[in-house]
Nucleic acid binder design. Structure first.
Length: 816
RNA sequence: GCCGGAAUGGCGGAAUGGUAUACGCGAUCGACUCAAAAUCGGUUGCCGAAAGGCUUGAGGGUUCGAGUCCCUCUUCCGGCACCA
């Protein structure tokens, strides 16, 4: 037989598979009863650097599953696409002085070239690209659906904003008298996508808004990571998504998902649900009241003061009453300029200033208590005001100690919290730690938000027919320096009143898994029929297997669930959740144990490995190197083991003959391998699946003959891991159609067990010998044989055993 | 600080409470070769000449039997971090 030329073989089959559309996914109509199976990878950001050898690990794992399912007869949806909007693409474009669109084109080509060489079974005809207007048309469409929704707490779901208008019209007498602009402002408080303001990190020197991770600590406060320019807080107009409305459902529905427990836990902590009470403290001698949030209403009798966040809006109202206003203002200014890291540092002593002249009335006993401001109270959580109980809260105790405030020791019992809430005239409420998501970027390279404002300030939607609202060409896509998006300097855009902010990077990735179901659809983001087929609660429930990095736990994986739920509320998608089963792939580290990075010069390019060892070797090695979700160091030294394995398979093919039983000795190993590989793939135990194949190969090599039919089964097991070489040998042996649609082998349970078993004999739990007996030897006989074993007799030295334990087929333990 | 996860040969790792170190890498000895590579075969946890003893981060416990279950602790990785 020819020698194993991986380059020739791999090129040949990649071409052949593409030509024959071997991995084509059938549409719902064409599937004709074939069951769907959806295996999804988190689509990549096509960066200029291309892939390193760690990137394909997850893709290989999911490809192994997709291939096995396809062989089992499922209609497999296994797509790939590109998430190409967002900051890195923009920065790459700026740095390389080319238009982001061009940069994306080039980078996508690089990725496709690299991915193509590894031999994935993607149906490339379904590829999506978030920057394609035909794609982001639907991102904009979904945005408008969300914009035109409010969350009805009674039904716990999204409903059209028009319904809310009708309700206001009927129930609120003031509504009719309101101007259009006033109505707009009211509705804005309910919309699931709404306009508002938020604090951003503004760098005057660079003229841009910076993300938190683009900022580092400087000697006099925060500075930009690049250049070290000072960064300050600045309020900026933004769009938001009211994700907090779904807090409850986002937590509750986690329970039914087959996700890694720690990812679910990260989401739960991030959402941070907490049940407590809102209690109103009247301000003495004023109409104002301070509403505090507490989870321990039962400690109301222990309240000795109240603390407001320095940002609390009530401070403006009360300004005239505050006797030490200058001091208070100085404190507010100081904490405003504090870097968030400094402010929330745990070891920092708590600071604050008393609002002299102000006191609050504890509703449970009418007691007047002093009111303070302190930056340990956060404006964004609860009500931005707390009642302080130094006797029962560590932070309050510290604060009280620092400022010599009174402590009242009272008994408290958490089971009384509802009773005391009612007594104090308060309300039971649920609060969440997480915030509404900012849905705007002051950047060029993102989806335009399909809204415009007329001269009176009334917001208009871009009509559905007019979508997509395409991103205009600009002279310069670099930051404007004013903090506004580059779109603000496009005259026709501004004249039309279009929103100049663009959508954030996570917009396009929050629904792409739906588009794969029907990527060419011009009338809808996907047809009802396709969605019903691929997202079917009866069948499974959406994406059957989702593979990607754990770093998306509080970003992409949360936003996608949120969008999906809004769409579900309208009946656009049939399942409550997008991703049934999630697995995280581990990171491949460089051989020096550090992350692969240009900076360390330790990056290994998969192209080189594919050229030297072959894609099959790369795939096999990446699966074999260790547990799928573990971070493992790359070792170009060890990869040779996988290459040798493939070469041995290749050579074994020569030995294959049509043979009668008798002359083969590997049967048990083969059936064990079929069982193990079948089960391990389902369970992401790829490393042990490969090892089972190695054991089987070792046995086949030792055997006098290898039967063709058995070797074919072995190739079928190998096919998901090393698809090219398996296909080549399959045809060499006379295969008529691709091995990748040839079926999946099954094992014979009877062949898993051998007639003879080796039983270990222990004396006081220490191994002393072993006996080989026929499988059906009785317990009595085995024990007798064990007691008669030479070394055992020596150990016994005439003593009578207290107890003899027999574990069938495994061991005998003689206890003295 | 809190919440997750991990710790096993020289290295990557395997092990339903039942022979710890499978499988692979490396190392080493041998065969083949003029020689080398490749390939094939043997050996390879530690101590010991052997008999035997010891060994899964440390210490305790449950059990006839623990890498696996329970308790205490150490280190490392990931997440959150004044959340009232």
């Amino acid at each position: 037989m020819k020698s194993y030329d991986h380059q020739k073989i791999e090129k040949k089959w990649q071409k052949e598979w593409a030509a024959k559309k071997t991995y084509k996914t059938l549409s719902a109509a064409a599937a004709k009863g074939k069951k769907p199976f959806y295996v999804l990878d988190m689509f990549p950001y096509p960066s200029g650097a291309g892939l390193h050898v760690g990137h394909p690990r997850g893709y290989i794992g999911s490809d192994v599953i997709a291939r096995k399912k396809r062989m089992e007869g499922y209609n497999v949806l296994h797509p790939m696409g590109y998430d190409a909007f967002g900051l890195p693409a923009e920065q790459y474009a700026i740095a390389n002085k080319i238009h982001p669109r061009k940069a994306v084109e080039v980078n996508v080509k690089t990725f496709e070239g690299q991915l193509g060489k590894i031999g994935f079974s993607y149906d490339w005809s379904r590829a999506v690209n978030t920057t394609d207007p035909e794609y982001y048309k639907w991102t904009q469409w979904i945005f408008l659906k969300i914009y035109n929704s409010w969350f009805d707490p009674a039904q716990n779901k999204a409903r059209p904003i028009a319904e809310l208008e009708t309700i206001f019209e009927k129930q609120n007498p003031a509504w009719k008298g309101m101007s259009a602009l006033e109505k707009q402002a009211v509705l804005m408080q309910y919309r699931l996508a709404y306009e508002g303001h938020s604090e951003v990190n503004w760098c005057p020197e660079m003229g841009t808004v910076l993300a938190n991770d683009e900022i580092v600590d400087g000697p006099d406060g925060p500075v930009s990571e690049r250049g070290g320019y000072p960064v300050e807080k600045r309020s900026m107009r933004q769009w938001f998504m009211r994700i907090t409305a779904y807090g409850d459902r986002l937590i509750a529905d986690l329970d039914g998902l087959a996700w890694p427990e720690h990812i679910k836990e990260i989401q739960r902590n991030w959402i941070g649900k907490s049940e407590g009470s809102e209690i109103d403290f009247a301000v003495h001698g004023s109409d104002a009241k301070i509403t505090v949030f507490t989870t321990r209403a039962d400690t109301l009798y222990g309240v000795t003061y109240v603390v407001l966040a320095p940002e609390h809006p009530l401070l403006d109202t009360l300004a005239s009453e505050i006797k030490n206003l200058a001091e208070v203002k100085a404190y507010i200014k100081e904490s405003r300029n504090k870097d968030e890291m400094v402010r929330t540092a745990l070891d920092k002593p708590k600071t604050g200033v008393e609002l002299r002249g102000i006191s609050a009335i504890n509703p449970i006993n009418g007691e007047a208590v002093p009111v303070w401001i302190g930056d340990y109270v956060l404006p964004g959580y609860g009500t931005g005001a707390v009642m302080a109980v130094p006797a029962h809260d560590e932070r309050d105790r510290q604060f009280a100690e620092t400022y010599n405030l009174h402590t009242k020791n009272i008994p408290a019992d958490i089971s009384n919290k509802e009773k005391y809430t009612v007594e104090a005239g308060g309300r039971i409420v649920t609060k969440y730690k997480f915030r509404d998501a900012v849905f705007a970027r002051q950047r060029y390279w993102g989806e335009p938000i399909p809204l415009s404002k007329d001269q009176e300030g009334l917001i208009h939607e871009v009509a559905e027919k007019k979508l997509p609202l395409e991103l205009p060409n600009v002279k310069t896509y670099e930051p404007s320096g004013t903090g506004e998006s580059p779109l603000a300097s496009v005259a026709p855009w501004v004249k039309a009143g279009y929103e100049t902010n663009t959508m954030p990077g996570w917009a396009g990735s929050s629904w792409y898994f739906l588009r794969y179901a029907d990527p060419k659809n011009k009338k809808a983001f996907a047809s009802e029929k396709e969605l019903a087929y691929w997202f079917n609660e009866q069948h499974h429930g959406g994406v059957d297997v989702y593979v990607g990095g754990a770093e998306h736990a509080t970003g992409h994986l949360l936003y996608s669930r949120f969008w999906h739920k809004v769409l579900y509320d309208y009946g656009f998608v049939p399942t409550k959740e997008p991703f049934q089963l999630l697995r995280n792939q581990g990171i491949i580290l460089a051989s020096d144990g550090r992350k692969m990075s240009k900076r360390w010069g330790n990056v290994i390019n998969p192209d080189e490995i594919v050229a030297t060892y072959g894609a099959d070797t790369l795939r096999l090695y990446e699966m074999f190197m260790g547990p799928f979700d573990a971070s493992l160091p790359w070792s170009t030294e060890s990869i040779i083991g996988s290459r040798r394995f493939i070469e041995r398979v290749w050579r074994l093919a020569e030995k294959v003959v049509n043979v009668t039983k008798g002359t083969i000795s590997y049967e048990q190993a083969l059936h064990k391998a079929i069982k193990k590989v079948s089960e391990d793939i389902e369970d992401f135990g790829f490393n042990t699946a490969v090892s089972a194949m190695m054991i089987c190969l070792n046995e086949m090599e030792k055997s006098e003959h290898v039967a063709v039919s058995d070797f074919e089964k072995f190739l079928q097991l190998l096919a998901p891991f090393a698809p090219h070489v398996a296909e080549e040998l399959w045809y060499e042996l006379g295969g008529k159609k691709s091995i990748h649609v040839s079926g999946w082998p099954s094992y014979d349970a009877d062949k898993l067990v051998s007639q003879e078993v080796t039983i270990v004999v222990q004396v006081n739990s220490k191994n002393r010998g072993e006996i080989t007996v026929s499988r059906d030897t009785s317990e009595h006989e085995v024990k007798a044989l064990a007691l008669a074993e030479e070394k055992v007799v020596a150990q016994l030295a005439g003593q009578t055993p207290k107890k003899v334990i027999y574990v069938p087929g495994r061991l005998v333990n003689i206890v003295l």
